[in-house]
């Protein structure tokens, strides 16, 4: 009990070591193992899992290039990127408007932004299922007005997944963006107008540049979970349009190809780490620039 610095950190380190760091090493090991006969895996070195991402094994054992998994990876990245972009575009005006309100109103509005976030994720995704689904709210409404007789489902496409992702993660964008706008000294906006800048010029040359850190922080907060999202592709994408999240999940569930699942998981992890490292480097360079300018 002499040194609390050691004992205080021990449980946290032990927990993360046992449940995360060591298991990730095991995942890496599994990704280069052989698939077991009845699911699971056997520790026997093989790069099959990684080759499977790029190639298909033909009947006679010849390898042919198969881009279907690359497409899934690309779709995941593009959809996550799009969702992030849409969140930015929606969040900025809303966050800006909130900063203009009275103190009480601001607290209330921020609370309202975060409130849906407290509601279970699965319920929120389910709600969109009711709205977009066959005989769903939108379809019924359109039919009632007589605009359409019958229509294709609004579900099971990239758009539906995108709506779900934006809806799920937008509070994570609004909060940091709000914080950065809130911090903005109003005298800077006034100075821009004083120096003959129009509203648009002020927005483009003063407000947005100063809010970049907030938008960047929000982008990371939205982009990373979107990359690994599972519920939206399964429920709103109908499980047919794959993203990396449900692809991984399938390998540990029905398909039971653990090495392949592990290989995809490692790929996803590298993608996320890449984003975080690039972001970290950028933050470091900014800090350096700031330090040099002083």
């Amino acid at each position: 009990m002499k040194d609390f610095r050691f004992w205080g950190l021990l449980p946290a380190h032990l927990l993360m070591m046992c449940t995360l760091i060591v298991p990730i090493l095991i995942i890496i090991a599994v990704s280069v193992s052989t698939r077991g006969a009845y699911g699971g895996f056997e520790f026997e070195f093989s790069t099959d899992a990684y080759r499977q991402i790029l190639f298909n094994e033909g009947w006679s054992g010849e390898m042919e290039f198969n881009p279907q998994y690359l497409f899934i990876i690309a779709r995941t990245a593009v959809l996550a990127g799009l969702a992030t972009l849409i969140c930015m575009v929606l969040a900025f005006p809303v966050a800006y408007w909130i900063t203009l309100q009275s103190a009480q109103m601001r607290t209330l509005l921020l609370f309202m932004v975060t409130l849906p976030f407290w509601v279970s994720m699965i319920v929120r995704v389910y709600a969109w299922l009711i709205i977009l689904g066959n005989d769903g709210v939108i379809e019924s409404a359109l039919r009632a007005t007589g605009l359409v007789e019958d229509m294709d489902t609004l579900l099971f496409n990239n758009g539906a997944m995108l709506v779900g992702m934006v809806y799920s993660y937008i509070p994570l964008m609004i909060l940091p963006v709000y914080a950065s706008i809130e911090k903005l000294d109003r005298a800077l906006i006034e100075a821009s107008h004083d120096l003959y800048g129009s509203r648009m010029t002020t927005l483009r040359r003063v407000i947005l540049p100063l809010c970049w850190p907030g938008l960047g922080a929000g982008a990371i907060l939205v982009f990373v979970p979107c990359l690994g999202t599972v519920l939206e592709p399964i429920l709103l994408g109908g499980g047919k349009i794959m993203m990396m999240g449900n692809l991984i999940q399938m390998q540990f569930g029905g398909a039971r190809n653990w090495p392949f699942g592990a290989a995809i998981a490692i790929t996803l992890m590298c993608l996320v780490m890449g984003v975080l490292i690039v972001n970290g480097l950028r933050a470091m360079r900014q800090a350096q620039l700031k330090a040099e300018s002083i």
Binding site: M16, V22, I24, I26, V30, G228, V230, M269
Partner: peptide
């Protein structure tokens, strides 16, 4: 140490879930 404590936030949850499953 701080990064280790926050590690679950840095990983996609699906990776974390695979990690504990395999563990």
């Amino acid at each position: 140490s701080e990064t280790i404590v926050n590690l679950p936030l840095l990983l996609p949850e699906i990776v974390l879930s695979v990690a504990v499953l395999i563990l």
